[in-house]
Design a protein around this nucleic acid. Structure first.
Lengths: 153, 153
DNA sequence: TAAGTTAAAGTCAATCAAGGTCAAAGCGGG
DNA sequence: CCCGCTTTGACCTTGATTGACTTTAACTTA
């Protein structure tokens, strides 16, 4: 398991973890040349692993002195966490986004490892009877039910 | 008794035995070309010899840098439990039976209160798109996935 | 200060690299 | 001969990589 995208992902997450702030600023071209890849690969990593669905916000500026800022949304247990998450999930959610969300919940220690596995197993179940759109809706339904159940204490 | 499938099976089991972890990661195409067979033969071996029923969990990822991970379930009483439970669940299960099983797992302290709520939420989800027989099948599928996931430690 | 230059980052489609599925053909023992 | 397990291959889906082209911002200079 070692494609460049994974390495870049880990690299960025480590930067975030080590940062004193809840965000980091990078230079696309720097990171790209550090990993010996084309700059657009960074965008690929950002869109596939640092989307809103994954709990991040990405801002940037072009031109001289440009940068990319990756902000980690705080995901703590206050008031409307459940509602926010359900909102985030909506009526329909892709497998990737669902997994991203679950991972984030785990990273924030909002859920345990076992709970993560449990939720992933549900999301990952090959619901072979179903068409894609229905599948995405079903997934949203189940995910919301799970998040609600596990967080409502 | 020496068809390719058996050889591949032994090969993979040896890898597992020699591994420091309780899992291995392989590349389907590599193994296939090592054994001079078509890639899909590996899938055949996996489904016929490394199923949950056999005490393994198989995960994978496609695309560049893809891999197949074979996880060996530790063979203590919990695993037998998983296998037995999966057996018990079968292809289809009613809501009442499912709930009963979950309660039982809780009573035995095999799962936590949160996990119980999580599982109940999944089972209880009104899967409004579906007919009864399919619903029962789906429930069985999800329940088995959950039990396996939560107990695989 | 407007115009031109340079230094970023963004987009998108093509291509490559896996693994998944399924049905049909092959084969071996009873 | 038949049944069930094995083998094969065509076709599918998903994910990663690359590069040509575009857009935006800052800097420089006349």
């Amino acid at each position: 398991m070692s494609n460049i995208s994974d390495l870049i992902e880990q690299y960025l997450k480590k930067l975030l973890k080590d940062s004193l702030e809840d965000y980091i600023e990078i230079q696309r071209s720097k990171v790209a040349s550090y990993f010996n890849c084309v700059p657009s690969q960074i965008n690929y990593v950002l869109t596939t692993r640092f989307s809103t669905g994954h709990g991040y916000i990405v801002e940037s500026r072009r031109g001289g002195g440009g940068f990319i800022r990756i902000i980690k949304l705080p995901l703590d247990r206050r008031v409307n966490l459940v509602l926010d998450i359900c909102d985030l999930i909506g009526e329909s959610i892709s497998r990737v986004d669902a997994m991203g969300l679950i991972n984030r919940l785990r990273e924030e220690e909002v859920i345990t490892q076992r709970e993560k596995r449990l939720m992933c197993a549900v999301i990952d179940s090959k619901l072979r009877y179903l068409e894609m759109p229905v599948h995405n809706q079903l997934r949203a339904l189940l995910l919301k039910a799970m998040v609600t159940a596990v967080l409502k204490e």
